[in-house]
């Protein structure tokens, strides 16, 4: 505020009234500008279910997260006594019953055209080294559950059958549900291709015969009933990211 002396004495009450008026006017303009900004942010053109500036913010947050990401940082693990059955939440693309013997996991090569390079039986997954972990399954809705999982590391699968692409996409056999992963998360030691949950083979509702479990992401990324794994140079489509959610969803 100005401290210049004035020559004529001014009535302080009048002066305060004037200053208050001016400040309220400034505040009013600021509020108007702010409201307009927020309104624009809300009603800007949609980019996959959310206004594009908000999508940009999510992508900015992703870059910040990736800059801080440590491949050696682990999701906390728990004593097996705390493991319980998680809720069955996602049913999209799931079959009610599956024929284990005839199940195939298609490996798709990178490129514009989807080419099936390999079609692997479940045996190929069981032949990979088996790992067990008890981690917290965290749903994007906000609930969480400690669960025990057993399966092969996605990183082992990628090294044996895959390519060095920056992205990996996974889909159900009917392609109705699909998720995309960045390579760092896919190669993480706790990203499992799981076939057992809490000591039992998976049930169809929990993703039999093979599901992803990625404790570095919200549960929506842990796709059930994997029918195809695609190696991609571009960001693979992601079911929930197309419906307004962040693509990365990394923890």
């Amino acid at each position: 505020m100005s401290t210049t002396p004035v020559t004529s004495p001014v009535d302080p009450e009048q002066q305060l009234r004037q200053m208050t008026r001016r400040s309220f006017a400034t505040g009013g303009i600021a509020a108007l500008v702010g409201t307009t900004g927020l309104w624009w942010l809300k009603s800007a053109k949609l980019d996959d279910g959310i206004s594009w500036p908000l999508r940009k913010v999510l992508q900015f947050n992703e870059r910040v997260s990736q800059a801080y990401f440590g491949p050696d940082r682990l999701a906390p693990t728990f004593d097996i006594s705390r493991a319980r059955e998680p809720r069955v939440n996602g049913q999209i693309g799931l079959k009610k019953s599956v024929d284990l013997a005839r199940w195939r996991i298609d490996v798709l090569s990178p490129g514009e055209k989807l080419v099936v390079e390999r079609s692997l039986p479940m045996g190929a997954i069981h032949d990979l080294p088996r790992f067990e972990m008890v981690t917290e399954f965290k749903c994007v809705e906000g609930w969480s559950q400690v669960v025990q999982w057993a399966g092969a590391r996605l990183s082992d699968f990628i090294e044996k059958y895959g390519h060095e692409t920056p992205f990996i996409g996974l889909t159900t056999p009917d392609r109705k549900y699909y998720v995309g992963l960045d390579r760092a998360s896919a190669m993480h030691s706790q990203s499992l291709l799981a076939y057992e949950m809490n000591g039992e083979p998976l049930t169809p509702g929990h993703g039999a015969p093979l599901r992803l479990v990625c404790p570095l992401k919200y549960g929506v990324k842990s796709i059930k009933q994997i029918g195809a794994i695609q190696f991609a140079n571009h960001r693979p489509a992601d079911y929930w990211a197309e419906r307004g959610y962040d693509w990365y969803l990394g923890h």
């Binding site: 401290t3 004495p9 200053m19 208050t20 505040g27």
Partner: peptide
Amino acid sequence: AAMVCGYELSAEVPQPMTVVRSPVVSQE
């Protein structure tokens, strides 16, 4: 209003002979 404009009228009445050098006596 003081949270908007920053100033408030003083509660007490200073000595009548005080010459207010500046209408705005700030801490500065």
